[in-house]
Amino acid sequence: MKAGSPARRGPKPKLDTRDNLIRAGLKTIHAGGFTATGIQDIVDIADVPKGSFYNHFASKETFGAEVIDTYSTLGQQRLRTFLCDPGMPPLARLQAYFDDRIEAFAANAYARGCLMGNFSAEAADHSAVIREHLVTQWDAWSGIFESCIAQAQREGAIDDRRSAALLARFMFNSWEGALLRMRVEKNGAALAEFKDVIFGMVLAPRQQA
């Protein structure tokens, strides 16, 4: 190139392509499922060439694992805004969180449910990579619930005959099952029953002597 000649200008690289693909994956997979969502669907929404997908992800399977992690991280941020609120008693925080989620699912016509639950039902039997990521994220969520329940036990709000870890896993497992039933029935009956049993029996306030 001769001195003083203008530099050639080409299209600027999209530095956020990877994030755009993950956001597109969150949207399409949550709406249509992992198996039914093709890579072409994802790149079309992200508005990137199909080859760009493989510049960032080795396979659709590894991409799905990244989508799970991103979804989980976003969900945990919301979870902590409720369960780590020092201005509310622990049981009130838990109830406020589930009330918020029930309202959100109602506003969405009881569709989609939890993306991690959807992945568990659809892909966990067929992908070790996805299964490993799900196990890690389920444990992370359960740990946040466990901390809140443990505080309620320390404060004497609920009894401690069963460990906070066990109660957290049972509550979380029950919630995910209720979400699957919700999607089938397209109403909030299973979610209301979940709240009634969990807060009326499993995490019922300790009776004063």
Score class of each variant (00 low, 15 high):
residue 36 A to F: 07
residue 111 A to D: 05
residue 125 D to T: 08
residue 92 A to P: 00
residue 198 I to E: 00
residue 61 E to C: 07
residue 3 A to T: 03
residue 8 R to D: 09
residue 20 N to K: 15
residue 143 G to P: 07
residue 193 E to Q: 14
residue 19 D to C: 08
residue 188 G to Y: 01
residue 167 L to W: 05
residue 53 F to A: 12
residue 67 V to G: 00
residue 10 G to L: 14
residue 54 Y to S: 12
residue 208 Q to F: 02
residue 66 E to L: 00
residue 112 R to F: 08
residue 19 D to I: 11
residue 176 E to P: 04
residue 199 F to I: 11
residue 146 E to Q: 15
residue 53 F to I: 12
residue 129 V to I: 11
residue 4 G to N: 03
residue 49 P to I: 11
residue 98 F to C: 07
residue 95 Q to G: 03
residue 19 D to M: 11
residue 49 P to L: 10
residue 74 L to T: 13
residue 160 D to M: 10
residue 45 I to W: 00
residue 172 F to K: 15
residue 94 L to V: 02
residue 123 A to M: 11
residue 97 Y to W: 13
residue 65 A to L: 03
residue 43 V to S: 10
residue 160 D to T: 12
residue 120 S to N: 09
residue 180 L to S: 10
residue 74 L to S: 08
residue 138 W to Q: 14
residue 150 A to S: 13
residue 64 G to R: 02
residue 152 A to M: 11
residue 134 L to A: 11
residue 193 E to S: 14
residue 33 G to F: 02
residue 209 A to W: 02
residue 55 N to M: 12
residue 188 G to R: 01
residue 80 R to G: 00
residue 85 D to I: 01
residue 13 P to N: 10
residue 92 A to N: 02
residue 47 D to H: 09
residue 55 N to F: 12
residue 134 L to G: 08
residue 158 I to S: 04
residue 204 A to R: 10
residue 37 T to F: 04
residue 208 Q to M: 03
residue 26 L to E: 12
residue 202 V to I: 14
residue 199 F to S: 09
residue 39 I to N: 10
residue 112 R to E: 07
residue 187 N to W: 01
residue 15 L to I: 09
residue 114 C to G: 01
residue 56 H to A: 06
residue 27 K to E: 10
residue 122 E to Q: 13
residue 47 D to N: 14
residue 42 I to W: 03
residue 165 A to K: 13
residue 64 G to M: 04
residue 65 A to H: 02
residue 94 L to Q: 03
residue 96 A to S: 10
residue 28 T to E: 10
residue 35 T to L: 09
residue 71 Y to Q: 08
residue 75 G to H: 06
residue 181 R to A: 12
residue 110 Y to E: 09
residue 171 M to E: 06
residue 197 V to M: 08
residue 64 G to W: 01
residue 196 D to N: 09
residue 85 D to N: 01
residue 133 H to Q: 13
residue 47 D to G: 09
residue 158 I to T: 05
residue 100 D to W: 02
residue 141 W to G: 13
residue 169 R to K: 14
residue 184 V to C: 05
residue 198 I to T: 10
residue 149 I to D: 01
residue 183 R to L: 09
residue 14 K to T: 06
residue 163 S to T: 15
residue 208 Q to G: 07
residue 41 D to Y: 02
residue 70 T to F: 06
